[in-house]
């Protein structure tokens, strides 16, 4: 079926199998491979994107449910040569090891800081509970959130 959605401020359309997920539509049809495909069951958060401004797992959204709607992906965060403050903070603290979970975490952190510019550590941990990282042990990721929060307030 023909899906037309506004992806990162640009209307895109493509034909997909009606049972395809939004994640499949983004990666395999549109070539936006920033969102990662890992568990395909909403457990890992690697495919996190915004659908109409809400943080969602794109593997659990039917592509057809995004038809006519607004999707923002990790690709929208950096502008030209400038990284998003959350991306910079991840680099600074070494919150990236294998990097597979990173795009999903960056999106989830950016979403958190849009809603709560000064989150406590408890809030950070609850907000990132749906994003699994098997390398870092999360300590550097949480450091990165705090640094990004501080910079984004300035």
């Amino acid at each position: 079926m023909l899906i037309k959605a506004r992806i990162n401020d640009e209307w895109r359309e493509a034909d997909v199998w009606p049972g395809a997920s939004l994640l499949f539509f983004l990666r395999e049809t549109l070539g936006l491979v920033g969102s990662k495909n890992a568990c395909e069951q909403g457990e890992c958060g690697s495919c996190s994107v915004w659908l109409d401004g809400e943080l969602v797992c794109s593997c659990l959204v039917l592509a057809a449910q995004a038809h006519g709607h607004e999707v923002r992906t990790v690709e929208a965060l950096a502008t030209d040569d400038r990284l998003h403050p959350v991306q910079e903070a991840f680099i600074q603290t070494g919150a990236v090891q294998c990097g597979f979970c990173t795009p999903g975490l960056i999106v989830a952190v950016a979403d958190l800081l849009e809603h709560d510019p000064r989150p406590s550590e408890t809030i950070i941990r609850e907000a990132l509970a749906g994003n699994l990282c098997r390398c870092t042990g999360y300590a550097k990721i949480i450091d990165a959130v705090k640094i990004a929060a501080g910079r984004m307030q300035k």
């Binding site: 909403g42 943080l55 609850e126 749906g130």
Partner: peptide, 8 residues
């Protein structure tokens, strides 16, 4: 679930 799951 998680925030992502609760949003849906």
């Amino acid at each position: 679930g998680s925030p992502q799951i609760r949003n849906r």
